[in-house]
């Protein structure tokens, strides 16, 4: 019994990396995990803002460090918590019949290639903007050999790990 997925359902599945059915059990667990992550972030931001207000006022370097640690906490703190919690509860496992297994793998390959291209482009733009701030010409850097090498390495690593992780979530069963 398949029902058409709404945009919000699709977005939640994309955000948490869930390929299979988003049923009521998974939704309730994701709500709980998301709620915990929100509370962690809320108190972190509250405390860190007070600290930076006391210590880093009129200090540009402190503000830069604050932004960096915020990003680090977001990725390593709440991001890792979410990934580990989802993995422990096996919410991202997708059961695929042996008959459809090859098709699903092919679909995942295409999706991961698309995702890798987009993420590599975003990475390149951020990298080039960072270099531009240091006085390097933006356009000539974007088409330079250095950029090409960096983009290739990033795309290879990102694409490889995306594919390995996504394939590891598939469980084949026989009808």
């Amino acid at each position: 019994m398949k029902t058409r997925e709404s945009f919000s359902t699709k977005f939640i599945k994309y955000f948490y990396g869930i390929d299979g059915e988003l049923d009521e059990y998974r939704r309730s667990e994701l709500n709980r995990i998301g709620n915990n992550a929100y509370m962690i972030l809320f108190y972190y931001l509250l405390v860190s803002t007070i600290v930076v207000e006391l210590v880093g006022r009129n200090n540009f370097q402190s503000l830069q460090n604050y932004l960096f640690f915020n990003l680090l906490f977001l990725m390593l703190g709440s991001g890792m918590y979410t990934v580990i919690a989802i993995h422990k509860l096996k919410l991202n496992i997708t059961d695929v019949s042996a008959m459809n297994y090859k098709d699903v793998r092919r679909m995942i390959l295409k999706r991961d290639i698309r995702r890798t291209v987009i993420c590599t482009m975003i990475y390149c733009i951020f990298y080039a903007v960072g270099m531009h701030k240091d006085g390097v010409d933006l356009m000539s850097f974007l088409v330079s050999l250095d950029m090409l090498m960096t983009a290739s390495i990033f795309a290879t690593i990102f694409g490889f790990f995306s594919l390995v992780i996504d394939y590891s979530h598939l469980r084949r069963y026989r009808d």
Partner: peptide, 27 residues
């Protein structure tokens, strides 16, 4: 199988497993 039952009612196999093991109270 759990898979067949799950696909029939539109949930994941894990959900059927959790219900059968009394680890989740379904709506």
């Amino acid at each position: 199988s759990q898979i067949k039952l799950a696909s029939e009612i539109g949930v994941a196999r894990q959900t059927i497993n959790m219900i059968e093991n009394n680890k989740y109270n379904p709506s």
